[in-house]
Write a protein that binds this DNA or RNA. Sequence first.
DNA 1: TATGAATGTGAAATCGATTTCAGTTATTTC
DNA 2: GAAATAACTGAAATCGATTTCACATTCATA
Lengths: 330, 330
Amino acid sequence: MRIKDIAKLAGVSPATVSRVMNNNGYVKDEKREAVLKVIKEVDYQPNSIAKSLKNQKSHMLGVIVPKISTETASRVVSGVTEVAKAHGYQVLIANTDLDIEEEINYLKFLSNKSVDGIVMMGTEITDRHLEVMDKLTVPIVILGQEVFGYTSIIHNDYEASYQMTAYLISQGHKAIAFIGVSEKDKAVGVIRKNGYLDCIKDHGLEVDEELMAIGDFDIDTGYQMMNKVLEKKIPTAVYAVTDHLAIGATHALLDKGYRVPEDVSVVGIGDIKLAEYLNPPLTTVHYTFKTSGKMAAEVVFDLIHRVRTKGECLMTTFELKKRASVKNIR
Amino acid sequence: MRIKDIAKLAGVSPATVSRVMNNNGYVKDEKREAVLKVIKEVDYQPNSIAKSLKNQKSHMLGVIVPKISTETASRVVSGVTEVAKAHGYQVLIANTDLDIEEEINYLKFLSNKSVDGIVMMGTEITDRHLEVMDKLTVPIVILGQEVFGYTSIIHNDYEASYQMTAYLISQGHKAIAFIGVSEKDKAVGVIRKNGYLDCIKDHGLEVDEELMAIGDFDIDTGYQMMNKVLEKKIPTAVYAVTDHLAIGATHALLDKGYRVPEDVSVVGIGDIKLAEYLNPPLTTVHYTFKTSGKMAAEVVFDLIHRVRTKGECLMTTFELKKRASVKNIR
DNA sequence: TATGAATGTGAAATCGATTTCAGTTATTTC
DNA sequence: GAAATAACTGAAATCGATTTCACATTCATA
């Protein structure tokens, strides 16, 4: 069923059908009714691709995520889809599986008019990214990393990291192990580490390299890094930069016979859904990822509608979730 | 940059540019090179919407999920995107947030030529769904529920449920509580219950209504339903039809002072990522959701390419994960 | 009742690609 | 060397909607 067919059935021209559908221009009441009747009868749905071509907008938002099957990414996508829906938009998923080449390909692909705006969950932003992003004609919002000249939404990683470390210190901990990730990821790898380091120094404690380990993002890495630290020193608390790392670390501790939190306290960052159901419930930082996703989408729409200018950096809030995995040893 | 501009720059007609881009038809080598040179120079990306309109295919797959922010859904989407990518396809997400109206709207929307195929993660399939699905011109695959006349991919819920119950019985359990969900969800609400009931009967045990409770899908419901059962009876084992319900049940037990698994064993279904990191690690059934997603996508492509006919019902495998949450009391 | 404004309508151009069709040039084949 | 075939090319139609433009009708106002 094309607009032509509807026009014929209703005894009008395609132009009139279009005017009825989009509610613009003059149409005599009787013709409008006739058209609406036919539309209802045949359950006519206009071809959205033809619409997109003519209107030069696709009513689609692209979301580039490093790994859709993670809790963080899926929460962000959930937020984005919610806002998109409210604007009558669809969401196109680009799942890069942490492949930088893919990320760049998707940026290129999404730019050639197939979406009206892009939300990118950033991990590592390289010069190649910037090169492609410079040529982009559609608005883009980067989530999770600050990129100069581009609209970014970041979590207050520094402050969260600092406060978490300060909390451990306030509970009497001095030997606080740090389990982090590669510096390629600015937000998680660099900023969270800086928060930890600065806090340690500000409180007049020593930074001890032997208490620090760097690895990947998964639970298993947390396990291994914890063991690596335990070979040299036994901390009273462990600060892992993600909840998954914290879970891995906890298991390494338990396997070595240490009790959590009686012997060693453990904290993470992220507040995954199950954090409070772990045993012991994990002390962590709650980032509102769904809210970030919503915010990112709102901002993209602002950029699309030109009610906001490119280049801002917004920050989302966080909340320290104090749970049983930390013991006061003061 | 349109194909016309490229044509002008290369000193040929748009038709020739198209022939070069799509590698069909005759083009003299020198012209081909000239065109390719220009394409590379200006980094020309053809407008995919115009392509879609002319070619009558969008190279997009629609995925309808009840709630993208769940582990199950995001794993399925991950599988679908992987296969889609391999076929040069994009994935459009339709997140219904468990709203049936939305599900039907999306079915309608996706059908009008904006996607070439649909994967729907089904929960409850109503007559309204069927009515809309009957009119669909694009292939659809339903994941998680069997729908007569439509291609479905289901998890072997009956067998999984039966085997899990049988395992508990084999460990000496006789009073096995059941925490289920509404029968609106055929697969989880009806089939898993039947697996439990049949297994109980087949082993000559009594079905005890007081050991059974039905509720929603969330952790909290698991907690409440467990408490409801505990008011009447104290089982030696609890079979919850999802891992989240099992987690809720475990917490209810712990809060009431029972130890798991020393006093009461607990099992779930689904094998969420953290199941093995819970304390105690949860005995559960591992469904390969990502694999199901992949399979669903493959089947959609088969339907698109007409190398498979509509109406089949495929079944995915599962694996019983025996972990510490079950105690042998024989 | 004339005259301008408001209302109403459809033919045709447009969005950016693909493809048919008709015509031209090069290459075989007899 | 003529005829048949293959290689090549671009103008124009097409996909299905929207919108301009030109024209027709109704309505209000002096």
